[in-house]
Design a protein around this nucleic acid. Structure first.
Length: 498
RNA sequence: GACCCGCUAGCUCAGCCGGUAGAGCAUUUGACUUUUAAUCAAAGGGUCAGGCGUUCAAGUCGCCUGCGGGUCACCA
């Protein structure tokens, strides 16, 4: 017993023991409810005191919840009990429930869970309530809740003890419920269009599909290491080869990298592939999907994100990266074919050109990141990525300096990344070989050779459009959350050493 | 990784120039049969994140460690 309980915890444990002595289970049994707080309010919310008075008989309701406030006035009292949908006030009167039950109510603590049976009533101050005729103790809370007025505000505690946060902070609960609805809305949209939701392995024997440092785990029976997936891409494309023409996967990815306001080690994405489509198809789909989700879950396409007003109304801008740079700087990279000239321009614009920036495309990307990215507030599809920064994408057939790729930017952040997929097996094998060379040079984010994937392409993969959308970031945007931790039920935190 | 800020009762927060640790909510006891941040009266509750140092004396000053938040850098 190394636990040192506080005075309040000792008192609550004593109260639990007292309940047991009275033959009442301190942790309760099934309680069948007729209403929750929401359905109760919906059914009786429009009644007036006069309606209730003149009614020949009132319906008996059964509602359960956690005691959040309590005002006991001797022989009668009020409390608010809370369930998933909100709170409802209960009116408990000695004369209505008898001495024994009233003493139960009187000894009840904030945080306890109770069930009540009673009839609708409206108080003098006009609040719809339940006049309790039966009061049933369900569960004793052994720890006190945070203060009722300020709630739990300590950010660290809110993330570490999400259950307390969910009890105390309506906003947190709303955000996290909305996350669930956003994902459901996404599924409904895609399933309605005939897409097939699939599940591919999370344990990967080969690293691939993205550039990222992986988590490594070990399978005992096979006695071999596995990576936790950094992307489902190569498995989903095998399905396109296999003739599943439109597939998507919503799931967790794992990247062994830093944690900050935008990154959690495990995060959720949707990846989607559509055979016979391309970049344009993915733009249309992406826009329609996100607008449809916003309309269904928020009933609007006009968002406030932090200080910024963002309109998701359809007709999102589609802009070539080089055109955006020209808008901001006046430099036209379509006309620049000489690396040294490009480098000189970069230096004149105070950009740091590193040794690995050996192509004009790298310089273009430096300009984009420095002068354009953060200026993009409204949803914009930026396409025309230089080949140098897009090693796994098909070239633009009209201009081989660029690829058939786009990224969706909103408020300076990337939300989606899409390609016309590379389906040339010979090219794909060469790119894997280049990745192996990078790996040998010490880039531990480089892909490994995936022979089976190349073989699959050798059977022929239709021209295909593919897209990945970061769901956590999308939820942040739609819920106006500044941190990824606000949209994860249980964000990763460093353990506290005690 | 660098810098800045925070950590005091279960919760939300005060605590000045270093001198016996404070409030509100919550808890306990008492009063109160339509209150709603209920009210009134009294009481209990602290390893001031952890450690080291300076000092007659440290919540307070200095250094180290831990966790969190922010800014920047890196990365997708």
């Amino acid at each position: 017993m190394e636990n040192k309980w506080t005075e309040q915890e000792i008192i609550r444990r004593d109260k639990a023991a007292e309940l047991s002595q009275k033959g009442i289970d301190p942790y309760g049994q099934r309680f069948d409810r007729t209403h929750n707080t929401e359905t109760f309010k919906r059914e009786f919310g429009s009644l007036t005191p006069a309606d209730l008075e003149s009614a020949p008989s009132l319906p008996l309701v059964r509602v359960a919840g956690r005691i959040m406030t309590k005002r006991s006035k001797g022989k009668a009292g009020f409390a608010h009990i809370q369930d998933q949908f909100g709170q409802i006030q209960i009116y408990v009167k000695f004369d209505n429930i008898g001495e024994e039950a009233y003493s139960l109510f009187d000894k009840g603590d904030l945080g306890d869970i109770v069930g009540v049976e009673g009839t609708p009533m409206i108080t003098h101050s006009g609040e719809l309530s339940i006049r309790v005729t039966k009061y049933i103790h369900l569960v004793k809370a052994l720890r006190p809740l945070p203060e009722k007025f300020h709630g739990l505000t300590d950010v660290e505690e809110r993330y570490r003890r999400r259950y307390v946060d969910l009890i105390m902070n309506e906003d947190s609960k709303k955000t996290l419920i909305l996350r669930s609805k956003i994902i459901a809305s996404m599924r409904n949209y895609l399933n309605g269009k005939g897409y097939l939701e699939v599940e591919t392995p999370i344990l990967h024997p080969i690293l691939g599909g993205a550039n990222a440092r992986p988590f490594i785990t070990h399978h005992n029976a096979l006695d071999m290491p596995f990576y936790l997936r950094i992307a489902p891409e190569l498995y989903l494309k095998r399905l396109i080869v296999g003739g599943l023409d439109c597939v998507y996967e919503i799931g967790r990815l794992f990247r062994n990298e830093g944690m900050d306001v935008k990154h959690n080690p495990e995060f959720t994405t949707i990846e989607l592939y559509l055979a016979y489509s391309d970049l344009e198809g993915m733009m249309d789909l992406c826009e329609d999907l996100i607008v449809s989700i916003a309309e269904e879950t928020l009933k609007t396409t006009q968002l406030q994100y932090g200080e910024k007003a963002i309109s998701l109304a359809k007709g999102w801008r589609r802009a070539h990266m080089v055109d955006l740079i020209r808008e901001q700087t006046g430099i036209d990279f379509f006309q620049i074919h000489d690396y040294e000239a490009a480098k000189q321009l970069a230096l004149e614009h105070h950009l740091r050109v590193e040794p690995q920036h050996f192509g004009i495309g790298h310089i273009v990307n430096l300009f984009f990141e420095a002068y354009c990215e953060e200026k993009i507030i409204q949803p914009t599809f930026v396409y025309g990525h230089p080949i140098e920064i897009s090693p796994l994408t098909k070239k633009d057939p009209k201009d081989s300096r660029f690829t058939q790729r786009f990224e969706l930017f909103i408020d300076g952040r990337e939300y989606a990344n899409a390609y016309t997929e590379l389906n040339d097996p010979i090219d794909q094998r060469e790119r894997f070989e280049n990745q192996l060379k990078e790996k040998a040079l010490g880039n531990d984010e480089a892909n490994e050779m995936d022979n089976d994937f190349v073989e699959s392409l050798e059977y022929g993969m239709p021209p295909t459009g593919g897209i990945g959308i970061g769901i956590d970031r999308l939820v942040m945007l739609l819920t106006n959350s500044p941190s990824i931790r606000d949209v994860l039920l249980f964000p990763h935190m460093k353990p506290r050493n005690r």
